[in-house]
Design a protein around this nucleic acid. Structure first.
Length: 755
RNA sequence: GGGCGUUUAGCUCAGCAGUAGAGCGUUUCGUUGACAUCGAAAAGGUCGGAGGUUCAACUCCUCCAACGCCCACCA
């Protein structure tokens, strides 16, 4: 314990305080039999490395809410956890392997590689949990959860099985976002668009001129599409066939009329590549056109490309253009055309859409919600997942703060397509599906075959045996689906998988729905929306009552922090330098819900504040030793309660008034998620009221025998109340000072001051 | 193409109807007990621009500009 030296030294305090809390086991709500339940789960941190300053903000805000509610007498549960982050983690390990040993996944067996990833995840997890504790997160470690641990895996398998039985999970052949580099598909939300400057080529296609940025995909183009309203092409009829000379000779083209064609763009005519482009795929589906692959899963051209077959698409463009030019088919090249290419945000591979067999969750399919506790949706109602997701927010059962995100949320739901949940990577939950006598990897190796043959194979598959369950089926010849699940499938279950679902546990009854979900707005779609989907669909319950979305922490230049930019700030560095309390207070002090630039100056200022509080305490303690020695509970309050108002000096009355005000303000602010306002209020009170005014006044009062006794009580009272009010924000220093007041209690479970 | 956010002191940000605020920085002064990680004082802003509503606007409304973010099937 730190002596009463002039300067507060956080390094001597924080560890001890953490140990004290841990010893008292107060973060486990099983110890507490009364109080209304209040549960929050910490957003599970990805095991891709260490926590960054953004996580520190999450922990700070979340822990403030938790400590505040705990002091208010709620039966609080705060659950820590980590997320395996499937693709992100695997990509990370692959990148490191390549960097260090020039090895790729293919140099290992599935098991060997998986082991490497698991090892990495385990290390990362240990670091993260340590960081969480140092940040002062008052979580119940006995309930620690990991998305890939046994209990959560059971939850995932059960969820899959139930959704499958509800026919909300289905297997289908669709155009998906294929990452040739990682050899997996990713969901729509995992894609990032990057601007690229390229040539825009115009080619002669029979009587038409078509424009494209990607000549290398055009080999199979046998449909030419235009808007039915385009008068320039009235003479051509839908379905009309014409012979055109194309890259590798003559082909029969069919004219298609479709509204999606923008008459203003290019020549108002385009050919389509349905197997590798979402728009084209939709057109082909609408008109029942052939869908023929041109590119294989590694990004190389298929035999349809003739002399170019086998070459990688990134390398053949110029050769193809050259050939077209020689044939007189190239009419014009427009340079410096800016367009957007899709990349996998988790691994940075360039997305090449492919048609693949994948598992999906149907969001527009009505199903029977057998059991519902959702207001306005009776048990047994027929609803779609989208309808449920919309309803719970529309009806106000889930409140989103700040409110502007409600609109964003609805917009996302309205545009939402079936969620592709299967991934072709090894790290993650294996899909609990087994097949017998089936070639379930239809996509690979079959691209040389004609559509008809592929369709026949697919039809055959339907007749084959599929088993969905938790345990492997009995009997011989069963093979488990090789794919794993999207990482958000498991984190979507987080509000209840952490409480022991699918078992009907006491925790589940007590703590679900959670009270508040606190996270950055950047994962509103990825995570928050998916939790709503899963909880409503599987439990017939909302996952939480309130969603509080905070802004992102950026670097001093307002840049998003990322490893590649090298502008990541490790919270541990900041904590070592200024103290955890100062960091927490600084992060929360001036964020009004928008992004903020992180500057160390702010933390420095809050370290000064911690020191100010320390010296305020030193003054009060050293001047009230006799009063402290009596060690009576609530002595100050009793003493004050019995004082007639006229026995108080003006300074006494003023500080009491200010204390009352700041208590009321802070309570209201925290309840309404205005943490910046709350922190400013207590800062102002401690420094500019208590220290600047009352302590100064008390110096004279303490010398006056008639006033001394009362002044001591009042000083102590103000200090104690301030420590309580400040505790959620600066848990370490406040607990430490509380310990010096000979109270023999822990501040963390003291009662929150009443107004 | 839609939607959203930001624009307030040198820097980072609060405030959001009633004569402009904080932290850091800057300038001047202050050496003996709570604190120099301090105290006292000071400089510094026509609150992005233009209209409007109002007794009164940084705060509400409209338009504009710059920057940023999200969503979208423009080849």
């Amino acid at each position: 314990m730190q002596e009463l030296s002039k300067t507060y030294d956080h390094t001597l305090v924080e560890k001890d305080i953490n140990a004290k809390w841990e010893q008292a086991q107060i973060f486990n709500p099983d110890q507490q039999k009364s109080g209304a339940p209040f549960c929050m789960v910490l957003p599970p941190a990805n095991v891709t490395g260490v926590l960054h300053i953004g996580h520190a903000l999450t922990v700070a805000i979340q822990d403030i809410i938790i400590r505040f509610r705990r002091m208010q007498g709620f039966r609080v549960l705060h659950i820590p956890g980590t997320d395996h982050a499937a693709i992100a983690t695997q990509a990370k390990v692959e990148a490191e392997l390549y960097k260090k040993e020039k090895k790729t996944q293919r140099d290992f067996s599935r098991e060997e590689f998986l082991k490497l990833v698991e090892q990495y995840a385990a290390n990362s997890q240990a670091t993260i949990l340590n960081q969480l504790q140092q940040l002062g997160a008052s979580v119940d470690w006995s309930r620690l959860a990991y998305t890939l641990d046994d209990k959560r895996t059971l939850a995932v398998q059960t969820a899959f099985k139930r959704l499958f039985e509800l026919e909300l999970i289905y297997r289908g052949s669709r155009l998906v976002n294929w990452d040739p580099k990682l050899q997996t598909n990713v969901s729509d939300d995992e894609i990032e668009w990057k601007e690229e400057t390229t040539n825009f080529y115009y080619f002669k296609y029979g009587p038409f001129i078509i424009g494209t940025t990607r000549p290398e995909t055009k080999f199979g183009d046998k449909y030419v599409v235009m808007n039915p309203k385009d008068s320039r092409y009235f003479s051509y009829k839908h379905g009309q066939k014409i012979e055109v000379e194309w890259i590798n000779g003559s082909i029969t083209a069919t004219i298609i009329k479709d509204d999606v064609i923008d008459m203003e763009f290019g020549t108002g005519v385009m050919t389509i590549t349905p197997a590798h482009d979402a728009t084209d795929y939709d057109i082909a589906k609408r008109h029942g056109l052939d869908i023929e692959p041109v590119i294989d899963l590694r990004g190389c051209l298929l035999p349809i490309a003739g002399e170019f077959a086998g070459q990688h698409i990134s390398k053949v463009r110029s050769a193809i253009v050259e050939k077209m030019q020689k044939k007189g088919l190239l009419t014009r090249v427009e340079p410096n055309y800016i367009h957007r290419i899709a990349v996998n945000s988790r691994g940075a591979g360039i997305i090449e859409p492919q048609i693949r067999e994948q598992w999906f969750i149907a969001v527009d399919k009505p199903f029977r919600l057998a059991h519902s506790e959702i207001a306005g949706i009776p048990s047994g109602a027929e609803k779609t997942l989208k309808q449920l997701m919309r309803h719970v927010v529309e009806s106000g059962q889930i409140k989103i703060i700040p409110a502007r995100f409600v609109k964003t949320y609805f917009h996302w739901i309205d545009n939402l397509r079936d969620w592709c949940i299967s991934r072709q990577i090894v790290f993650g939950h294996k899909i609990p599906v087994w097949y017998r006598n089936v070639n379930y990897e239809l996509g690979i190796g079959n691209y040389g075959k004609k559509n008809q043959e592929i369709n026949e194979l697919r039809n055959q598959e339907n007749k084959d045996e599929i088993y969905v369950g938790i345990e492997a089926p009995k009997g011989n010849g069963w093979t488990q689906d090789a794919d794993t699940l999207d990482t958000w499938f498991s984190s979507g279950l987080w509000t209840f998988s952490t409480l022991g679902w699918p078992e009907n546990t006491a925790d589940l009854k007590l703590f679900h729905p959670n009270a508040v979900m606190e996270t950055g707005y950047d994962i509103l779609f990825f995570w928050v929306a998916r939790m709503i989907l899963m909880s409503c669909g599987l439990l017939g319950q909302i996952p939480f009552q309130t969603v509080y979305l905070h802004g992102l922490v950026r670097d001093a230049e307002r840049q998003k922090m990322s490893k590649s930019k090298g502008n990541i700030i490790d919270p541990l560095d900041v904590m070592n330098k200024y103290g955890t309390d100062a960091l927490r207070f600084a992060l929360v002090h001036t964020t009004g819900g928008t992004d903020m630039a992180f500057t160390e100056d702010r933390v420095k200022g809050m370290k000064y504040f911690a020191n100010k509080l320390w010296n305020v305490s030193r003054f009060i303690i050293s001047n009230t030793l006799d009063a402290l020695a009596k060690n009576e509970q609530n002595q100050e309050q009793n003493a004050l309660a019995n004082k007639p108002a006229n026995a108080l000096t003006t300074a006494d009355q003023q500080i009491m008034e200010k204390l009352k005000t700041v208590t009321a303000e802070m309570t209201r602010d925290i309840e309404n998620f205005r943490f910046n306002s709350a922190s400013q209020a207590i800062y102002q009170f401690v420094w500019h009221e208590l220290a600047d005014k009352y302590i100064e006044a008390s110096k004279a009062q303490l010398k006056d025998e008639a006033l001394a006794d009362n002044t001591k009580h009042l000083l102590l009272y103000c200090l104690k109340q301030s420590l309580k009010l400040l505790h959620p924000f600066m848990p370490f220093i406040t607990e430490h000072i509380w310990g010096l007041l000979q109270t023999n209690t822990l501040l963390v479970i003291e009662q929150w001051p009443k107004e």
